[in-house]
């Protein structure tokens, strides 16, 4: 301990209070009193902001955890509250009987293939994404099969525009979108992921663009981006 008293200046007291406030440690009545002072005191607000920046450095200690896909779906549903979203809402709109819808979802989730195409969903996908257009008119579920190094994609609603194709893109970090390939006419497909890309999927988003037959003639999307969905854990 140094010899001098700690609270020798009002300024020190404010620094400490601002720190307690930024940490959320102040008892409710004191926090309310402090908040009331903030409104008219720019220096005090600066103290709180400084503490906030400093303490946020502690969050470097926190390991990132990829949230499940359903969280992003729920956020989109809450923000863009049009017709009900998600598989149930979509199936209701396209008029498929509920039982069939439930069976389809189960089939995808459990990896049981009842489809005629012979394209199987992965049993234990590492990442999933629900790639959905704003208006719900296009909806593609994707699941990454780490063992095979492939994306399993299943088009559940909508289709390419006449004479056009849907191209799947991976957007990760600040790099340009990377094509994962053109979706075939069949509703289900597996698209191989190039070896260098496989380690860069976490935190990425998948997007579908409208392209001429054969896919984008360029290295990036040339048509409208019709639907997007971030990769999350199953």
């Amino acid at each position: 301990m140094s010899g001098r008293p700690y609270w020798d200046e009002d300024r020190d007291e404010d620094k400490v209070l601002a720190g307690e406030y930024a940490l959320g440690l102040l008892p409710p009545d004191e926090a309310a009193g402090f908040a009331a002072r903030l409104g008219e005191n720019a220096a005090l607000r600066a103290l709180v902001r400084q503490w906030t920046e400093d303490f946020t450095g502690l969050s470097d200690l926190v390991e990132p955890q990829v949230p499940p896909v359903r969280v992003h779906q729920a956020i989109e549903a809450r923000i863009f509250s049009g017709p009900a979203r998600g598989p149930l809402g979509l199936f209701r709109r396209v008029g498929v009987p509920m039982l069939t819808a439930a069976a389809l979802i189960l089939a995808l989730f459990l990896g049981i293939d009842h489809g005629p195409s012979g394209v199987h969903p992965p049993v234990a996908p590492v990442y999933r994404a629900e790639i959905e257009a704003t208006d719900g008119g296009l909806y593609v579920a994707a699941a990454y099969d780490a063992g095979a190094g492939e994306f399993y994609v299943e088009r559940r609603a909508g289709a390419a525009r006449p004479g056009r194709v849907l191209e799947l893109w991976l957007i990760e970090g600040d790099g340009p979108p990377v094509s994962l390939g053109v979706l075939p006419e069949a509703a289900r497909a597996r698209l191989p992921v190039a070896e260098p890309l496989r380690a860069r999927l976490e935190g990425g988003i998948l997007a579908l663009s409208d392209e001429p037959s054969g896919g984008s003639p360029d290295r990036s999307p040339t048509g409208d981006v019709l639907a997007v969905g971030p990769l999350g854990t199953p």
């Binding site: 969050s59 390991e63 990132p64 990829v66 992003h72 969905g229 971030p230």
Partner: peptide
């Protein structure tokens, strides 16, 4: 969506 993809894992943690 890109903002969510880039930041949600940290915030979830």
């Amino acid at each position: 969506s890109a903002l969510y993809a880039a930041t949600s894992a940290k915030l979830f943690g």
